[in-house]
Design a protein around this nucleic acid. Structure first.
Length: 593
RNA sequence: GCGCCCGUAGCUCAGUCGGAUAGAGCAACUGCCUUCUAAGCAGUCGGUCGGGGGUUCGAUUCCCUCCGGGCGCGCCA
């Protein structure tokens, strides 16, 4: 509808300017859906935008535009209002014309599945495989999954990927933590290191290793602690400076335990525990994401990236291009040439790669795989990391727009509900178990991602009219119920007869529902283009509200067969759009409540 | 100190490219079930859009500044 009105206005603009003997301004013509029906269906500010340049009063120029506006069967009335707005009132035919389109296209109506906009890689979640996901990861999961759906629905060929951080020191900490719990379970008495991972899930990992390997990794505690200085302890009431110093010493102690573990277990034994521990944690993560209806095309291992040698090869490329230099024994990347506040270390003085080096190599691989557009979904605590990755990507591509980072602001749980279940936090799995996948997803998505989110667990789990996700699902269920009732009464639905009688849809509620349906295609473009899935979550609530208002005011199963068929066409189309939108949100439409 | 996100109704939050009288849900109050599901509908109440300047036909929106909250500023990951 908008392009049609733009065409009309453009013609009017040319004619009106010709009359004035002036060149038509090159302004792009803005058409907005009105907030208030007294202003019609669509409005344009064109007269006010052009007035100054043409030396005309806005309202007078608006009159000239309206005078030159070509007639259109879709436009019932045009008015000038306020400081010079041009308001369009559409005919009923123009509104109902989208119903046959919706029914013909089905749930993908309004979507473009062609992939013609090219390939895009969406990397999201990528939670460390050292424990279960928490409620913050859930937000990135819901956001990333729905954003990927939206991009796929608006012409992109989308690849969804999870980067597994299964290399680096954290994996050694995981390995040692599991092994120490394993030793404890085997009867050894030891003091668990302060900086290890103490949680219950570590114990369960240790138990499953014992189930698979028996006592193969059992060693005496005496060997573990031989010639090892005891772990420094934090004194009561220490100041921050002291605390930091002690923490560093405790980390160093943990490093010594890691070395001792390698020595006592041998390379192969140590690696077996690492693999088992990682597999355990990843299995939990995969299960949670499956329960959350989040799907990935690929799980990409950092460890594999390093072991294949590509991590080094990729950095070599930057070296060859002249972006890498040596200082203080370390290899640095000149990210400050591309907007970062300082240069960053790729290889430490001891030769080890930094996390940044591997992550950068990973992004090089993404580009090598032919993705001109990369979307990374990160937690807000990583925002200080954006500049360096962006700088590196710009070095590689000479483009500023190749990488888009979407930051998820923090999630807190509603007061009084910060209970500890698995270790020292509420896991995403806990939340899904308690609230359900649909409500959890909807609550995450019904908030702008750059807004701090307070997750109201009590509201989300309430099976009541307070809960917006039920409100939307109820709208869908009500439509299903109408068709069930029709069948029970032995009635028939003649869609073609309904399509032929759309002119009968002339009540206020019907026009409003049609107006909301008509906004859907453009809304998908906006939600995908701005990367704001929450606008879709708001839309389905608007659509449900329009349906409920209609349902409450009018009956669908009536004696007037023609009108009944027309109304059934309208609610069938509404159900179709609801299903399409809920599908993108990853929320299940329910046939009954 | 510097950088990023944020500040909108009692609460939780929308507000697209600068547009008309700033919206929704919850809470409070009033109506509506003999009728396709009341997990619903209709209405009332509720605002210095954090404060102050600036830009212009017009600012919640853009710029400056101050106040308040969160996060980040490693040869950690």
């Amino acid at each position: 509808m908008k392009p049609h009105l733009q065409d009309l206005l453009r013609a009017a603009l040319n004619a009106a300017c010709a009359e004035l003997g002036a060149a038509a301004p090159a302004a792009n013509i803005v058409i907005d859906a009105t907030k208030d029906k007294v202003h019609g269906d669509f409005a344009s500010n064109l007269a006010m935008v052009c007035a100054k340049g043409l030396g005309q009063p806005p309202r007078k120029f608006a009159e000239a535009l309206v005078r030159h506006l070509p007639a259109s069967p879709r436009v019932a009335k045009v008015e000038i209002a306020g400081p010079g707005f041009i308001n369009f009132f559409l005919t009923g035919d123009a509104l109902s014309a989208l119903l046959p389109e919706i029914l013909a296209a089905g749930e993908t109506w309004g979507q473009d599945r062609s992939g013609a906009k090219g390939k895009v890689m969406v990397e999201f979640v990528s939670a460390n495989p050292t424990g279960p996901m928490h409620v913050g990861h859930g937000r990135g999961a819901a956001y990333g999954d729905t954003l990927a759906n939206l991009l796929a629905a608006t012409g992109y060929a989308v690849h969804r990927e999870y980067y597994i951080n299964d290399a680096g020191r954290q994996v050694d900490v995981l390995t040692v933590s599991v092994w120490l719990r394993y030793l404890e379970a085997g009867g050894e008495t030891l003091s668990f290191p302060k900086r290890g991972y103490p949680a219950d899930y570590i114990r369960r990992s240790a138990e499953s290793i014992r189930a698979a390997h028996g006592a193969a990794f059992q060693r005496p505690a005496a060997d573990l602690y031989r010639d090892l200085a005891p772990e420094p302890q934090l004194p009561e009431g220490a100041d921050d400076k002291t605390k930091d110093a002690i923490k560093l010493q405790q980390e160093a102690y943990l490093d010594r335990l890691i070395e001792r573990a390698r020595a006592l277990l041998g390379g192969e034994g140590y690696a077996q525990i690492t693999r088992a521990a990682l597999d355990d944690q990843l299995a939990v993560i995969r299960a949670t994401l499956a329960a959350f209806h989040v799907r990935f095309d690929q799980w990409y291992s950092e460890r594999a990236l390093v072991e294949s040698g590509f991590a080094k090869t990729a950095i070599e490329r930057l070296h060859t291009a002249g972006y890498v230099y040596e200082k203080d024994g370390a290899q640095w990347l000149k990210t400050s040439d591309y907007g970062d506040e300082k240069d960053r270390v790729l290889f430490k003085a001891d030769g080890a790669a930094t996390y940044f080096a591997n992550d950068l190599a990973y992004h090089v691989d993404k580009l090598d795989r032919g993705y001109p557009l990369l979307v990374d979904v990160w937690g807000a605590d990583h925002h200080g990391y954006i500049a360096r990755v962006r700088a590196a990507i710009e070095m590689l591509t000479q483009r500023k727009d190749a990488l888009h980072v979407a930051l998820m602001q923090f999630v807190t749980l509603s007061s009084g509900r910060m209970g500890k279940r698995s270790g020292n936090f509420v896991t995403l799995q806990d939340l899904i178990d308690e609230v359900g996948a649909d409500a959890t997803r909807f609550f995450y998505l019904a908030r702008s991602h750059d807004q701090h989110l307070e997750f109201d667990i009590d509201l989300a789990r309430s099976q009541s009219n307070d809960n917006p996700v039920y409100y939307v699902q109820y709208a869908h269920a009500r439509i299903c119920s109408v068709f069930r009732q029709l069948a029970e009464k032995g009635g028939t639905y003649d869609r073609d007869a309904g399509l032929a009688a759309l002119a009968r849809l002339d009540t206020e509620e019907e026009k409003n529902l049609l107006t909301v349906l008509g906004k859907y295609p453009e809304l998908l473009q906006i939600a995908a283009g701005n990367r704001t899935p929450h606008t879709l979550a708001f839309y389905v609530q608007d659509l449900a509200a329009a349906l409920h208002a209609y349902y409450n005011q009018h009956k669908f199963l009536i004696d007037d067969a023609e009108l009944q068929n027309a109304r059934l066409v309208l609610i069938e189309a509404t159900r179709t759009v609801l299903r399409g939108a809920l599908g993108l949100l990853g929320v299940e439409p329910k046939d009954s409540m």
